[in-house]
Amino acid sequence: MPNLSDTVAVVTGASRGVGRGIALSLGDAGATVYVTGRSVADDTTENLPGTVTETAELVADRGGEGIAVRCDHTVDADVEALFARVDDEQGRVDLLVNNVWGGYEGFDETFDDPFWTQSMDRWSGMFDAGVRAHYAASRLAARRMVDRGEGLVVNVSSGDGDKYRGSVMYDVAKTAVDRMAKAMAHELRDRGVAAVSLYPGFVRTERVVRAFEETGEEVPEETHSPEYVGRAVTALAADPDMMGKSGQVLVTGDLAREYGFTDTDGTQPPPFELDTEPI
């Protein structure tokens, strides 16, 4: 595990799932991690387990410093207050992981229904609580990183090359997340700050496990833990040649082979492949 004891990280949407896995892996590396989300103490969302309070405590248990911050990333004042607090307490931010995503809320078996039958309410989940939230946090983090001439922004995205992601809204939103990282990297390249998009695989999040439990099916063997994604982020943050990857779409399974890390069970799941056609 790399040593990131001098790293100050902000991981958005880290109450559970991939965000929690990333925060825990950074904790393993000794980082200071600001864990953000709306679920705090006993107040959770969507009846799913996990809060930023719990995640921060687990980060500390792993050897890092976990700091829970209740933040609704659709509210600009909340995001500004988050970074002001990081300024006051740390004086810098080295790593931003844009993981917050409201696009799954309210979805059930209708996720892949034809776009003309989908509710417009879901658009705001994908774009306000997803794409815009990534942009809002990135612009505030980038200001601080540019001043110091170093830093890394990771947009957690999803996909498999040019293959269709199963929903028009989802496909467009995740494509926007990828393009945002590429465009940010273009403007940041001469400032010493890197930006990338990262694809997890098929992750055993609380939401995924619940979905399979409700259908009575076993969780597929090809799934991997959220910490597998976290180990990818940790490896990137520790890479002295990270600028060489800036602007790229990176895949967790590929990074595992490049950097030599494994999942928590010692396996090294390959890159995830969607069962759809390129578009």
Rank of each mutant, 00 (worst) to 15 (best):
P2C: 12
L4I: 02
V11D: 01
T12A: 06
R16H: 02
G17K: 06
G19T: 07
L24R: 04
L24E: 00
G27M: 02
G27D: 02
D28L: 11
D28C: 09
G30C: 00
R38C: 00
S39I: 09
D43A: 01
D43K: 02
A56T: 13
R62E: 15
I67R: 15
R70L: 09
C71M: 08
A77R: 14
A77D: 13
D78V: 11
E80S: 14
A81V: 08
L82Y: 00
F83C: 06
F83S: 13
Q90Y: 11
G91A: 11
G91L: 06
R92Y: 04
V97R: 07
V97N: 11
E105G: 07
D108W: 06
W116I: 12
Q118S: 15
F127L: 14
G130D: 07
V131N: 08
H134L: 06
A136L: 10
A137Q: 06
R139P: 13
A141W: 03
R143G: 07
S158C: 06
G159A: 05
D178F: 00
R179C: 01
A181Y: 04
K182C: 01
A185T: 05
R189H: 00
R189M: 00
R191F: 00
V196D: 05
R204W: 04
R210S: 03
R210C: 01
A211D: 12
F212L: 08
E217W: 06
H224M: 09
H224W: 14
S225I: 09
E227S: 14
V229D: 01
V233K: 09
A235P: 10
A238N: 07
D239Y: 03
K245H: 15
G247P: 10
G247W: 05
V249K: 08
D254Q: 08
L255Q: 01
A256Y: 09
E258W: 00
Y259W: 12
Y259N: 08
Q268W: 00
P271A: 13
P271F: 05
E273K: 15
I279Y: 03
